[in-house]
Amino acid sequence: MSDVPSPSGALDATRSTLPLRSVLPAFAIDVALAIALSFSTLMLGLFGWAAWRGIQLAQRAGGTPDAQALQAQLGTPPVLFLIVMTLVSTGGTALVLYLWRRRATRAERRASLDRLRNARTWIWALVAGVATFLFSTLMSAAGRLWLGLDLEPSNLDLIKDGFARYPLFLALFAVVLAPLYEELLFRRVLFARLWQAGWPMLGLVLSSLVFALVHELPGLNGKPAGSTLFLIAVYAGMGGIFAWVYRRTGTLWAPIAAHILNNAIALAVLQVYGDASV
Rank of each mutant, 00 (worst) to 15 (best):
R102Y: 07
R102D: 08
T105P: 04
R106C: 03
A107Q: 12
E108R: 07
E108G: 09
R109W: 00
S112W: 00
S112L: 15
D114S: 13
D114A: 15
R115Q: 08
R117P: 03
R117N: 07
R117H: 11
N118W: 07
A119V: 10
R120F: 05
R120M: 09
R120S: 12
T121A: 03
T121I: 06
L126A: 14
V127W: 00
V127S: 03
A128H: 04
A128W: 00
V130I: 07
A131F: 07
A131H: 10
A131M: 13
L134T: 08
F135W: 12
T137M: 10
L138I: 11
L138M: 10
M139T: 11
S140P: 01
S140Q: 11
A141P: 05
A142V: 09
A142H: 04
L145I: 10
L145V: 10
W146A: 08
G148V: 10
L149I: 01
L149A: 05
D150W: 03
D150I: 01
P153F: 01
P153V: 03
N155H: 06
N155I: 06
N155K: 03
D157E: 11
D157T: 10
L158I: 13
L158S: 14
L158H: 08
L158M: 15
L158D: 09
L158K: 08
I159N: 02
I159H: 03
D161C: 07
G162S: 13
G162Y: 09
G162E: 06
Y166P: 01
L168A: 14
L168I: 11
L170N: 14
L172Y: 12
L172F: 15
F173H: 12
A174C: 08
A174L: 06
V175S: 09
V175P: 02
V176M: 14
L177Y: 14
A178I: 12
A178G: 11
L180T: 13
L180I: 14
L180M: 13
Y181N: 15
E182V: 04
E182P: 06
E183S: 10
E183W: 00
L184M: 15
L184I: 14
L185W: 08
L185C: 07
R187S: 05
R188S: 13
V189N: 04
L190A: 05
L190N: 04
L190P: 05
F191E: 02
A192L: 05
R193E: 02
L194G: 04
W195H: 13
Q196T: 07
Q196F: 00
A197M: 06
G198H: 05
G198E: 01
W199P: 04
W199S: 00
P200D: 05
P200H: 09
L202H: 11
V205T: 12
V205C: 08
S207G: 07
S208N: 06
S208M: 01
V210A: 03
F211P: 01
A212E: 00
A212Q: 03
L213R: 08
V214D: 01
H215K: 10
H215Q: 13
E216G: 01
E216Y: 03
L217C: 06
P218E: 03
L220M: 12
N221G: 05
G222E: 02
G222L: 11
G222A: 11
G222H: 04
K223D: 00
K223E: 02
K223Y: 01
P224Q: 11
A225E: 06
A225I: 14
G226D: 09
S227Y: 02
S227T: 08
T228C: 02
L229Y: 06
L229A: 14
F230M: 09
F230W: 09
L231S: 05
L231P: 02
